[in-house]
Design a protein around this nucleic acid. Sequence first.
DNA 1: TGCAATTTCTTTAAACTTCAAGCAATTGGC
DNA 2: GCCAATTGCTTGAAGTTTAAAGAAATTGCA
Lengths: 164, 164
Amino acid sequence: MILDSETKAVELPDDHGTELRLWLRLLTCTTLIEGEVRSRLREKFDVTLPRFDLMAQLDKVSDGMTLSDLSKRMMVSNGNVTGLVERLVESGHLDRRTSETDRRVQFIRLTKLGRAEFRKMAAEHEKWIADIFGDLSPKDIRELMRLLAKAKGSAQRSAKARTA
Amino acid sequence: MILDSETKAVELPDDHGTELRLWLRLLTCTTLIEGEVRSRLREKFDVTLPRFDLMAQLDKVSDGMTLSDLSKRMMVSNGNVTGLVERLVESGHLDRRTSETDRRVQFIRLTKLGRAEFRKMAAEHEKWIADIFGDLSPKDIRELMRLLAKAKGSAQRSAKARTA
DNA sequence: TGCAATTTCTTTAAACTTCAAGCAATTGGC
DNA sequence: GCCAATTGCTTGAAGTTTAAAGAAATTGCA
């Protein structure tokens, strides 16, 4: 243990252990929950998590969304979305329509079937999440929301600085 | 807005919106950081995140680990680890040795090369993480650690209840 | 207008991932 | 000892994911 002149514990100048442990805990937590949600979606609805996530994005809007929008919101690559959408159109959950003003653009929508199935899944999903976080008090949740917002901002700042 | 008899805002009995928003924020945060780490690992070391994660597990021990151990610690499937290890043995980063007491078991170790390369990457990685969380105060970090531990416990409780 | 830059999307290859099935080896109860 | 159950790992199929390259369309600027 290193002590400063007033006999208080201090960190080594380059010790970033606490941040690393925080990151590992964040990752563990997310992986755990994600795995749980993935299992339940497969088990109860025979749907994969990526498909559910994509439909969740589309359910937020009534008039459709482009592939690029989806890609940005889901934080996955463009090509990834292309394949996912293709399979969901194939299964009758989505609907694609080429823009009339820009022929590169495709507007993607949930079909009636897609929206109905998604709503059913989403209702269950919300209950699962509530149960998964069931031990947290409202205050815990507020605090976590606040701190995660701060962490997100910090990460964005760092990412931006690297790319710049 | 719904008010109770003492004119205090209350939630609908089945409104789990706050938990859902918390989950989405947690996921966004993790995805963002994971993507950033992935990019940097590829850019600076031309290594993938799963390979780095696997080596990180092995670096913690001196005498090797079985595939099952790796699978549990990384929270990924058994088959997944089989493939990852195969490629890392191929590239000379890992070393496999069959157990003498149980011929099903393989002990996996970092080779000298593997450990050296990992240590170099890990040092950089730790700095990246410190920068990514750079806007958080020590108190923020402590609080996040605490709340995430609580969330993890809650998720484990929920997962266990489902499987039971 | 002309055309370089940008944007949108698709395609490809390689890697990663899960799940389920299967094989080989060990264990535990009888 | 016998053998059913379990454990450790691999395999195969389907799907997800990224990165990189490319095709098609639009935009913006000289």
